[in-house]
Design a protein around this nucleic acid. Structure first.
Lengths: 195, 195
DNA sequence: CGAAATAGGTAGGTCAGTCTACCTAGTCCT
DNA sequence: AGGACTAGGTAGACTGACCTACCTATTTCG
């Protein structure tokens, strides 16, 4: 009897996974409660037992997506303590994350797409901003190791690489594939080598 | 009697302008027909006399936003025939475009935000992709003038600058201001000078 | 038992799009 | 010149679909 249907927390996981897939693929506003519960194979009330509202589910989606990326980054990063490799690990983490979404096609950064749908004051937007700030600060930390005597240069290149990466993700999302991400990784590699 | 209320095309212009403001500030799905007609000061039926559907209005919004950008670029570009200035004109056009939206706060690239809300097969997404391709090809054209003997180098730097610009716009939209755009312009200027 | 799940329905609201009925300013035709 | 016609506008009701959120009643399982 491997299928337990009513283990506690199981419905929550299924809901969050289904919602993540649908929010990413179709957008937040275009995804209704019934679609989520149906895909999760869960009763509608189970959603409201585990999340106070759809907005809370959206918020959990944003946090989960950030955590996913961070886990992928740490796997990539811990393989080496070369700071150049650390910078590249940031790019690889996004490439890895993109490939997990390949089933329904790459749509760019789920967090950025979510932010585009949220109103100006929504706390979700702040969470997305926090994610982007953390990525940039990871880049800067590695660059400070590469240029230990030039903190402002490190900060400048950190911003440069953050914009490069962000743009590649956005463009890749338009195209529906991760080619741009690989191109950006190559550009970043060159940039670090030549300087 | 200076106010003609029923001049042909007048309602269409007012609708497109109102819809553009609202789509950009609040998103497409979050903006209803009634909100648009109310802001335009126009009857609902006038919308359906001028546009077959909301989707057509969205499509017109995307085209209009691209045309706006192109007009701003041409003003910036025609001031000089220095190819480096031509590259910078692309950045300046986005800075100019951002300042037109300052009334309600900068929200990044309206076309990219729209694409995030459109489903995979929507023709609007193709229009956005066309806009991005045109921007990159303008960059590459200037770079081909800068490096006339190195077309592949020009193409590579063109992609680099396109990603840089795209990322800066996206990040600026999260922050709600155009600071990132100015930073990216400075980075691009450096990049062209040092090489 | 009791916590957590299930199926399914309901309330209240919003949205896109249609419809009716009326108004106004030009244009055409005799 | 003047009446009829037309194009494009206004106001507002209305339909059918869908959405979030809540509710009821029942069942599963540790």
């Amino acid at each position: 009897m491997p299928e337990r249907q009513s283990a506690p927390g199981r419905a929550r996981d299924r809901l969050l996974r289904a919602a993540s897939d649908l929010f990413y693929a179709d957008g937040i506003a275009a995804t209704g409660i019934d679609t989520i519960t149906e895909r999760a194979g869960v009763a509608k009330q189970s959603l409201y037992n585990n999340f106070p509202s759809k907005a809370a589910l959206v918020s959990a989606y944003i946090d989960a997506r950030h955590d996913e990326w961070l886990a992928l980054y740490e796997v990539r990063q811990q393989a080496s303590d070369d700071p150049v490799a650390g910078v590249i690990a940031v790019f690889d983490a996004y490439i890895d994350h993109a490939s997990t979404a390949y089933e329904y096609g790459f749509r760019g950064c789920g967090l950025l797409n979510a932010a585009a749908e949220l109103s100006a004051g929504d706390p979700g937007r702040a969470a997305v901003r926090r994610h982007k700030a953390q990525v940039e600060s990871l880049l800067c930390a590695h660059l400070n190791d590469i240029y230990p005597e030039q903190p402002e240069r490190a900060a400048r290149i950190g911003k440069h690489l953050a914009f490069l990466l962000e743009g590649a993700i956005a463009r890749g999302g338009l195209d529906g594939n991760a080619n741009c991400l690989h191109a950006a990784k190559a550009i970043a590699t060159d940039l670090l080598e030549q300087s």
